[in-house]
């Protein structure tokens, strides 16, 4: 096991994880809001520090995690296992979380668990790295957590992303939830959010 794997936790594991969680909670209860969270000192490339922070905050031995083709590398697998206890799985349908280095790697959302009518909570959360949470094509979001409408413009999303997102939202209460992350901030898209563009 390599020493960098160990040295890349949060500087203050308990309190940084608490602050990161509050960031995730604020983002999820107010979709479209950009929230900064504490980052670990370093992370094994190409896993960005923001994705690593979300992993350190939410993953453990109860959350199988799926990695996209860019992230599925031995040092990242080891990093997650050592620091969180989470196992990397190769079948997307058994993942509780899925991490993506690029939004263009997003497969059909339906390959991930979307919950069942009885247990809609048994669904995956997709954590997606984007270059920047601003500067992309603007879209308007509506839904719980949004006073009336909020305009967002995350960059680097593939063509047709928002159509696919609306399909996901249309199946409510079944569906996946998503967290977009850039170099230091996050934005959350719970399944209740609907986009217009």
């Amino acid at each position: 096991m390599n020493a960098s794997v160990i040295s890349t936790q949060f500087a203050d594991p308990i309190h940084d994880a608490q602050q990161a969680f509050r960031g995730l909670l604020a983002a999820t209860s107010r979709p479209g809001t950009i929230v900064t969270i504490p980052l670990p000192i370093a992370s094994p490339a190409p896993l960005s520090p923001t994705l690593a922070a979300i992993g350190l905050t939410l993953l453990d031995d109860a959350t199988p995690v799926w990695l996209d083709p860019i992230l599925i590398q031995e040092p990242i697998r080891q990093y997650l296992l050592f620091n969180t206890g989470a196992r990397v799985v190769t079948q997307p349908d058994s993942a509780a979380f899925a991490f993506f280095a690029k939004a263009r790697n997003l497969p059909d959302f339906r390959v991930f668990p979307r919950g069942t009518p009885s247990y809609p909570d048994r669904s995956a959360t997709l954590v997606v790295q984007v270059p920047l949470l601003a500067g992309g094509r603007p879209v308007s979001l509506r839904g719980p957590g949004i006073e009336s409408v909020v305009s967002v413009e995350p960059a680097g999303l593939p063509d047709g992303f928002w159509d696919r997102w609306n399909e996901n939202a249309a199946n409510y209460p079944i569906g996946i939830d998503m967290i977009l992350a850039d170099a230091c901030s996050i934005m959350s898209l719970p399944r209740t959010v609907k986009a217009s563009f």
Partner: peptide, 18 residues
């Protein structure tokens, strides 16, 4: 911390499915 993580995940799902 394990328990908090489990509850935190439940809270995030709860917020996503009001």
């Amino acid at each position: 911390e394990q328990t908090k993580r489990m509850i935190r995940r439940a809270i995030l799902k709860a917020v996503s499915i009001p």
